[in-house]
Every structure is written in C-alpha cells, then in structure tokens.
Design a binder for these strands. Sequence first.
DNA 1: TTGAAAGCGCTAACAG
DNA 2: CTGTTAGCGCTTTCAA
Lengths: 347, 347
Amino acid sequence: MKRNITIHDLARELGIDSSTVSRALSDSPRVGAKTKERVKAKAKELGYQRNLLASNLRTSKTMTIGVVVPFISRHFFSEAIDGIEQVASEKGYRVIISQSRDSFSKEKEILDGMFMNRVDGLLVSPTQDTRDGEHLNQFVENKIPVVLFDRFYENSNLSKVVLADRKATYMITEHLIKQGKKKIFHLAGDLESTMYKERCLGYKNAMFDNGIQYEENYIKSIELYADTAVEALKEFLEDKNNIPDAIVCVNDVTALAIMKYISEKTDYNVPEDIAIAGFSNEPASDIINPGLTTVDQHPFEIGKTSSEMLFDFVKDGYSGQLSSKTVVIQPELIVRGSTTMKLAVEY
Amino acid sequence: MKRNITIHDLARELGIDSSTVSRALSDSPRVGAKTKERVKAKAKELGYQRNLLASNLRTSKTMTIGVVVPFISRHFFSEAIDGIEQVASEKGYRVIISQSRDSFSKEKEILDGMFMNRVDGLLVSPTQDTRDGEHLNQFVENKIPVVLFDRFYENSNLSKVVLADRKATYMITEHLIKQGKKKIFHLAGDLESTMYKERCLGYKNAMFDNGIQYEENYIKSIELYADTAVEALKEFLEDKNNIPDAIVCVNDVTALAIMKYISEKTDYNVPEDIAIAGFSNEPASDIINPGLTTVDQHPFEIGKTSSEMLFDFVKDGYSGQLSSKTVVIQPELIVRGSTTMKLAVEY
DNA sequence: TTGAAAGCGCTAACAG
DNA sequence: CTGTTAGCGCTTTCAA
C-alpha cells in the first residue's frame, strides 16, 4: 500500500519547511512567487493530494453540509437535492445526504452522525413524526446553521423555506368552483401533520370564501397510496347521495390513481362529471390524457433557496441566524384537462 | 461559542486518562465494566459527541463512500441512490453524493475532492464522455475500491454492475416482431456511447435473428429529448415509403413524446398502425393510456448490488478486487397496451 | 519571506 | 485493567 504523499514529503524533497509548503499550496501571500511555483510543480509531479481530514481537524471546518430528507428518490426531494447540490458545489461545499425513511429515530441517528462529522450546516426536511427540534439543539447550541425545508414542525424557531400549502389548495379549489363545481370532495392526508392540515385548510377556506357549504364527510383523511385512495373513493361513492363533481387530492399519485379508476371502472367522465386535481406536478401529470390539473411546488427552487439561505448563515458566522427567517415559496397552479370544463362559463 | 466536549474533558472530570475514556467509549474489552459505565454516564451528562474528524484522521478510515452520478434527480439514479444509501446505512457507512451533470471535467473535480476526503470506497456512474479511467487511478493505486454502475467505459478493468442493455432491446424488438411488426424504426441515442451502441445492437440482432431486413435509415441517432425525438420522427414520416409499423426508443421520455405526437397529430393509431416501445419503466409509462411497453432496469437493484459489491471489497481490504467482477442485471420486459395488437396471432 | 513549534481530538502500541 | 506516549497531516502563531 503506497503511503500517501504529505506536505512533509514535498518539504523534504525541496529542502524547505512543511509550513512553507502548506502556505504555498493555499496561495498565501506570505510566500515567494518562485517558491510557490516550485512547490506546486513538485506537488503535481508526486501526485500530491491534500488530506482534508487533517485540514478539517485543524481548522474545524469541513466544507460539507448535511442534507436529511425522508426519501431521496421521491420526485420532489430529488429535485430539491438537485438544487441544493448545485448551490453547494458552486460555493465549493460538498453535500452529504441521508434519508430518514420517515422514521424519527433514524432521523435522530443521522443527525448525530452528521454532528460527529462536524458538518458546517444542515438542511432538514423532517419526518412526519417530528414534533419538536430537540435533536437539532446540538447544532443550534454549537452555532451550526440549520434550515428546514418543505416540511417543518410547529413552534420551531428555526429558519425555513416552505411552500404556501394552504394557498395552493385554495387556488385549486377556487379554480374548481369557477369551473362550476360545488360538491367538492377532499382526499386529505394525515391531518396531524402540519402540511396536510394546511392543505385541508386551503380547501375549507376556498369553499367558505365562495359561500359553498361542505359536509364533514366530504373530507376524507387517508394514507397516501394509490390503492388506499381508490378504496376510499369507492367506499365514498357507494352512497349515491355522495357523488361529487370534483375531487381535490393532496398529491399526484392519488389523483392519477383515482382518475384512472373513474375513467376505466365507472360511468363518470373526467372532467365533465367529476373533475380531478392533484398536487406536485409530477412528470406523469402532463403525459396522460386528459392532463392532470395540479400545482407546481417548484422543488428545485425550494432546494436552491434553502441552500442559499443556509450559506448566508454559514458565511456570516451564524450571527445572521439569531433571527429566524421564513421564506415562503409560491405554488403555481397548472391547469390541464382534468378540470377544464369545455362549456364552462367564465365570469 | 461553546467549545465542544472532548475525551480530555471527560478524563479530567473523572480523574482518569483520556486513553481509557477512548477505550471505554468504543467498548474495548480492555477496560473495567464500572469504568465504562462511569465514562458513558459522564459522556451523556456533558453531551459529548465524538469528533469523527480526529478519529478518521487517526485511523485513516472515514466510514464514508462516495457516489458520483450524472444527474441526481433522474428517476433511474435517484432509485439507484436509494438502494446504495440503504445498504451503506445498514453497514454504518455514510454516503456522499455528487452529480457530474454529465461533464467530464466536473466528474474529475468531484473525484479529486472525494479522494481528498479519503472516502473508503467509490461508486461511479461515469459521464457519457468518460472514455478512460485515468482519473480513477489515484483510487486504484491507493487500494480504494471502485465500482462502476449502470454506465461504464470500454476497456475498464474495474468491477461493475450493469444492465444487459443489448438483451433489453433484443427482447423489445422480438416482442414487436411477434406482434406481427416488420417495419421497425429505431430511435437511437449517441452511438459513440457504449450503452446506446449496445441498445442499437440488440435491435439489430433481433431483426437479423428473425430474418427481417432493415434499412440503415431505419436507425436514427438523436439527442434524447422529447422535442428532438418528435422532430426526427416528423422528418422520417415525410417520406410516405417510410411509414413504420413500430418504433423502438431508447428511453421513455422520447417514447412518450412520440406516442403523444402520433395520437394527437397524425391519423395513425397506437398500437394498431404504429406500436411504440420505451426503455426504463418510468412511473408515467404505467399511467397513460395505452400504457407504454418498456423494460424495467431495476435501478434500485442495480444500486443495491453495486453497493454490496463495493462493501465486499471494502471488507476484504481490497484484496478481493484484484480480479474485477462484472455483474449483469437482467432487464424485465413490461408489456403494455402500446404494443399489444388486439388481433395479434400468437404462434 | 521562511522556519520552528505547537496542537486540533483521537487511537494504539507499549509498558506497567 | 489503566496510564504513558507518540503521532495521524495539516494550519497557524510567533519568532527570525
């Protein structure tokens, strides 16, 4: 096993001190131009590669930020990570990524590991079950900047970048109402979670503001899978008094699943009889026919923005984070065929 | 800024030596049971968190593997990363991920960085333009295991996990032939790239083996975007002698795009007049109507397998990698409506 | 402009 | 079972 070249090897070869080598390699002004050149040439010659472990230990900076998300492969998160990685790599930082698989204990474990690795900053999209920031305290106490993105827990005083969830479902619901829809069913997520509670509120507010009554049983909280969504809808449709004229879903997976179910297994037409709206603007929603009306969360932007915010804190040596900032990303309503009534009257 | 607690702090508080603390914390058998307890209690009390930078420097192990992919957010790669991350985290390793954006120089930069960070192993899906493994030599020379996955360059003597690309398009093409198709158009990728060359070969072989002649102009190499695919097809269809009865694409994006184009802008029907097949089994391909026939590359499995292979090398202290292994993952043909002739005769 | 010396926090060989 | 000692490779203060 070939031992790695160190600055001492270079120093010995050149007959100078290792501290001079160190300075030369980091382009310190306090070293002669020709010494610099000699050092760099020798470094290249011997294939020297700085050992960042040693450097990091010495400077207690790692030029690394940690990212924790529930699921790496989800469209939303992989896009967000893309944005994060892009900003970080521009600034010369590395990114270490872990997924909590939506398990709180895993999240805690990951964060401990990232702390031990002395990341310079942290970007977290917490678990559904994360109810407080106790496990983030070690970062806060040590002045390591933390920014939450997409998801957050209540009463957090950390900075965060989030989508205006409530507004998103508000926009969707209002759009449906303008299309002449009144009996609007809401297939909700876990209403304990801040995010789905907000989305539900958006629906309720839009209904209220437009003077439309809704029955409590028109809101159904389910686990957000394709099959559970279809099951829930089936059950709901069994009561013939319940036939809705539109359905507001909280993600595209459930929306696409029920749209498929309705088109193929029932006599209702989309959107004439039942209009359907999703949430997230996943690639599939633009490919099917009719296209799925949905909202774009701009995941790439969310990642980019949260990353930029984090680096502002990192740069300012944390003093910036004394006051916690919240940036709210605006959703974009994407109207497609699944809600567009051909004969709808525009008021 | 609160200084971090070190083993020396613990040692001082307990009136013992820091080396004993170190041993106690790593559960060495060479330390008394009650000392261990005292140490751990004190560690918890003071909120001690081991500094892995120091530990890593000392042991020259980082418990970290590097992953380099072209694009994090592509379905294939995010799934693969999911698999990698899962295996790594089971083994107590961290994963650092970077994207090359398919730029060779960026890839090189990333690899240098990962080397400086002394990753214990490396998983790389190289750039399209990566033609040799020169930039990987530093790892090989220092006995840091490297495994390529999905993509690779020719003449590499590194271990790798790849899809049987040629077989995949062979299966697709043969399936089309069995559906009675004969004039099969192949919308290929960059034929300089090993992967697309292989896929093209699968098409050619299947045609040949089934005694079907194809014209050279029935293979069209394009940049793999939705719009370029549609353009290429339009141009091809202008010559009325050219109307194909099936099209083999090398990814789902192009397949979905031309399917949409054909259904909406031409008089041809899918699959009766023109059958269409994709590649990758992206989520959207199961949602549209008709569903898109495609092959599943099992990205999660590819990630998992390559990661497991890497850890075998890491564990065996590299001796295992003296001979390079290649694991070939088998594609799975997913037949859906876009190629299923209702009246097709099964022989 | 360069060198000498100390030390980041940890582990491990050696000694007792 | 515990302590002593040295050092991983680098940066940085101080002195020249």
